Structures are given as structure tokens and as C-alpha cells.
Computed example of a mutant assay.
Amino acid sequence: MIRRYVVLAVTGLCLVSSAAVASPTCTKEPQDKWLGEEAMKLKIAQMGFKDIKVFKKTTTGCYEIYGYNADGRKAEVYFNPVTGEIVENNVD
């Protein structure tokens, strides 16, 4: 009986922690309303991000990058693909 509660507790913790690392929802607009990839990359560069290692579309309606910010710190950033605005900025 105790084992069952432990398994349930661990399963619940796993679900909560996996939800915490999910990417944000940036837009529900169709992709034909998004900035083109080249235009978005230019906008990102103008914001000071550089050495972009990853640039991709997420399943939650974002453009996501892994690179470095203007201060040279590692950054994982999610952008609204319609406006180009930063939705979430994770810097190490």
C-alpha cells in the first residue's frame, strides 16, 4: 500500500516538473501571419543576440533560439513570431 502511494507521488512530481519546462505559447495566429525566418533572424540580430546555434519554430507558436545575448551570456529565448517581441528570455 505504501509503495503504491510512493509511485503515485513520484508520478505526480514528474508530471509537474515536465509541465514547468514546456515552452510558452507565443501566438495562435496562423503561420502565414508570422514574420519570415530571415526577417526574424535579422530582428533577433538587431536585438543584440549573436552566435545563434539553434533557430526553430516550436509546436507552441514561437520562434526559439539558443545563442548568446549582447553581454555574451548563453540565452534561450522565445519570440512571438508575429510581432518579434520576446515572450520568454532564459539567460545563464
Rank of each mutant, 00 (worst) to 15 (best):
K57L: 11
P30L: 04
E38F: 07
D32M: 00
Q31K: 15
A45M: 04
C26P: 02
E64G: 01
N69M: 08
A9S: 09
A20E: 09
Q31C: 01
K74H: 12
G84K: 01
T59I: 11
D32A: 03
V21I: 15
K43G: 03
A9F: 15
R4Q: 11
V87C: 00
K41T: 13
R4M: 08
D92N: 09
I2W: 02
N89K: 15
R73W: 12
K50R: 11
I86D: 03
G67K: 04
W34E: 02
A70W: 04
E76P: 08
I44T: 08
C62T: 07
Q31Y: 06
T25F: 15
T27A: 04
K74Y: 13
F49L: 08
M40H: 02
V7A: 14
R3D: 11
V77Q: 06
V7P: 06
G67T: 06
K41L: 10
D92Q: 07
L8F: 14
E76F: 13
M1R: 11
E64W: 09
S18R: 10
V87K: 10
G67V: 03
R73I: 09
W34N: 04
N80R: 05
R73T: 06
K56A: 10
I65K: 00
G12I: 14
M1I: 12
A22N: 09
L13K: 02
N69Y: 08
F49Q: 01
C14Y: 14
Q46G: 03
S23Y: 14
P81Q: 04
L8C: 11
K53G: 00
V54A: 06
G36L: 07
R3A: 14
N69K: 02
S17I: 13
L15R: 00
N69V: 06
D92S: 07
Y78M: 05
I65G: 01
T27H: 03
L42W: 01
G67H: 10
K50F: 03
G61W: 01
E38Q: 07
M40T: 03
K33Y: 05
V6H: 01
M47L: 09
T25C: 04
V91P: 08
C62V: 03
L42F: 00
I65A: 02
C26E: 09
D51L: 11
C62S: 05
C26Q: 02
K41E: 14
E38Y: 02
T25R: 15
V6C: 06
D71M: 12
I65Y: 02
V87F: 07
K28Q: 06
N90S: 11
A22I: 12
G48H: 01
P81H: 07
N80I: 04
G61H: 05
V91S: 11
G48Q: 08
A20T: 06
Y63R: 04
M1A: 14
V10I: 15
S18E: 07
K33A: 15
M47P: 03
K56D: 11
S23A: 14
W34I: 01
A39P: 00
E76D: 13
E38K: 09
G36A: 15
E88H: 05
F79E: 05
V91T: 14
T25Y: 15
C62Y: 09
C14I: 15
V54S: 12
R73L: 10
K28I: 01
T60F: 13
G12H: 10
D51W: 12
T25K: 12
